[in-house]
Amino acid sequence: MDFKPSVFFEALTSPAFIDGVRITILLTVVAMAFGLALGLVVALLRASPWAPLRAVAWGYIWVFRAIPALVWLLFVWDALPQLVPAFKGDWFSAFAAATIALAMNEAAYAAEVFRGGLLSIDEGQRLAARALGMPPSRVFTKVIAPQLIRVTIPPLSNDFITMLKLTSLASVISLQELLARTQTLVASTFRFVEYFSAAAIYYLVLVSIFMVIQAQLERRFVWISRQTAGTSALSRVRQLTALR
């Protein structure tokens, strides 16, 4: 077996690698943030009472779920500047292109998650909020949104992990994220096993950290009182069943 631990550990700790990780994290977070915002808009459009708006939203989801992320990424990077002169400027970096492409891709999926979440919230919630006299914006922010966040945390966490891995596609447009850095180092050393293993370890660690964050988030959205919340999950279940 040809595996040199020293090369592997050197790869893990090399500044170039760590800088690649930094770009991977940054791209994931920024693209996800824009993707979620756009996805929420698309989901709300799909629930609009006005048919043309619903059609626009439906068309968006149809197109961006159909086009492979890699195709769309290459289109944004290579074709968009030819189509729209504004994208010829210096600001249009590989990072900007990757953010736009991955965010638009994510928005199509997030829109469907949000739509499912909105459908899962009992109509009585909106009704009760309106009956109290809340204007539409408050109905959404104070009553619908907190419940929407709770039901969409698990599916959107899936999307976040997918996004983290999709950022590796940006290596084809020369963005120096984790995979691009790995390939550069591999090309000069031919130590495939060590470098690709090190990259895999980084993805594993990043996803693990995120899973911990997800668990924390989900816990914040468990709606039980301090009296009922015992120290362990088991005691909580016991108290809840005792209440019934």
């Binding site: 009992d122 009585g124 009704l127 009760a128 009956a131 006299g133 907190p146 709770r150």
Partner: peptide, 14 residues
Amino acid sequence: EIGMVFQRFNLFPH
């Protein structure tokens, strides 16, 4: 100005 009480309570779970 009008109070409404529903059959299924419709309290806010959060």
